[in-house]
Amino acid sequence: MAWLRRDRKPSHRAAEDIDLDSLLALVAESRGYNCAFAVDGHSLTLAPAPDPGPDVPDPDGLGPGPGALDAVRRDGERGREIVVRLTGLRRVAGRRTREDWPMLVSEHLTHAVAVAGDPLDVCDLAQAGPSLRTRVEAVDEVPDLTRVVGRHLNADLVELLTVGSRLVRPEEAGCWPVAPGRALEMAASNVRRERLSVEDIHLSGTPVSRLTGEGPSTATHLRWLADYLPVPADGVLAVLPDPYTLLVYPVTGIGAVRAIERLRVHAARTGGLSAQVYWWHEGRLRLIKADIVLHGGQTRLVVAPPPEFARVLARLAA
């Protein structure tokens, strides 16, 4: 195999790194590439291997056989060398079981080939930093939370790190000299510079504020809601009908109970990011569970607020 070097001196590298390199070379070869590792192990270079001609089977299940790459060869991607960074992949692999390594390696090489030639190198924080943004998604809509970089806003919403229009992969963020939490704060700072538009609307007679952005990061602006409108001490009710829109209602009186109903019905009708109502208070986004149920031929809203919000409502009603 092309990646074996007989003249190497005895290696002092960790056994895990050696095993990962062997797997990288195996997968690269199964996909029709020769590869050469940098001396420091931080990268490898994929070079197009001679076309073997007919399709060959893939007995190890590690990727498509060389014949399956003919279409890629025709569009020119296989005509040049591709440098694949490995620092982040090694960090991610170190946190996963060896059973996960074939999948990690296969995805990493596939992605490296797919983005080869892109002017932006996401593994370079100096390049990627200005393009970092955040996006809020429902947890149930994220197929695998281990394959994204983000943080939970609550049990059902997660704030994800993006670059351009796509999610940042853990092995890309693993190349950066800062922790993922710091990268998320950098992304949030970028989002803050993108101002939202604000307008007052009514939902069945209940006045609410609608904040709209040009990008899918509008929910991140809850952190700086006071930049757009007065925020009372008891916080605001909020719904996220889609990634570009945020509806809020100030909690200043018992009218918040009716506002929960109006916001919940509106969110359910839009069928967007989340159908639930949230309470934004002291930097936290908490779910106000509100279920729409059919009882005796009538539609009712059954609300189960968190204890802290229930106490706020009791005080406002007194």
Rank of each mutant, 00 (worst) to 15 (best):
L160I: 07
V248S: 13
R151H: 12
R300K: 13
M103Q: 13
R284L: 08
L167M: 08
E29N: 11
D118Y: 13
C35I: 12
W176F: 07
R80K: 10
G41C: 12
L285F: 00
T162Y: 10
L23V: 09
G164L: 03
V257G: 01
P48Y: 08
T218K: 01
A28G: 09
T87N: 04
S11T: 10
M186K: 02
D17W: 07
H281Q: 13
E171V: 14
M103C: 03
V257R: 11
A155N: 04
T270H: 10
V312Y: 09
I260D: 13
V303K: 15
L263V: 02
L237R: 07
D19C: 09
D227Y: 05
I260V: 15
R31E: 09
E81F: 02
W3N: 15
T87L: 12
L125F: 05
L294K: 04
V293T: 15
L229S: 13
G164Y: 02
W279F: 01
L222R: 00
P232W: 05
E99S: 15
R264N: 06
L26N: 03
A47N: 06
E261P: 00
E159Y: 04
A126D: 11
R73N: 12
N34C: 04
A128R: 00
R258E: 14
S274W: 00
H12A: 15
L132C: 04
T134R: 11
G76C: 01
E214I: 01
R80Q: 05
A114I: 14
A290T: 15
R151G: 02
D70H: 14
L237V: 08
D60R: 10
S209E: 11
P57D: 02
A233F: 04
S11H: 02
A15M: 14
M186Q: 04
P59T: 05
V239H: 02
G76F: 06
T252I: 09
D21F: 12
R193L: 07
H202N: 03
A71V: 06
R166C: 02
R193P: 00
P306G: 02
L69S: 14
W101S: 06
P59Q: 03
R91K: 13
S189F: 11
A219R: 07
G76K: 09
L26C: 05
D60L: 13
A68M: 12
G63Q: 12
V142C: 09
T220A: 14
Q127R: 07
L86D: 04
S189E: 15
R147W: 01
D140L: 09
V303C: 14
R96P: 03
E194G: 01
R182I: 14
P64Q: 09
G63T: 12
A268C: 13
S43T: 04
D140R: 14
S209A: 10
P50W: 00
V239W: 04
V178Y: 05
V178N: 02
Y244I: 00
E141W: 14
R300I: 13
L26S: 01
V191P: 03
P241W: 07
L225D: 01
W101A: 08
R135N: 06
V257T: 05
E214A: 11
R223L: 12
L86R: 00
V248E: 07
V56Y: 05
R78D: 09
R182H: 05
H42R: 15
R90D: 01
H108A: 12
V236E: 00
H152C: 08
C175M: 03
V208E: 05
A15P: 06
L273R: 07
D40Q: 11
A116M: 04
A238G: 07
A15V: 14
A2Y: 15
M103K: 12
A179G: 07
P54W: 13
R98S: 15
R210K: 12
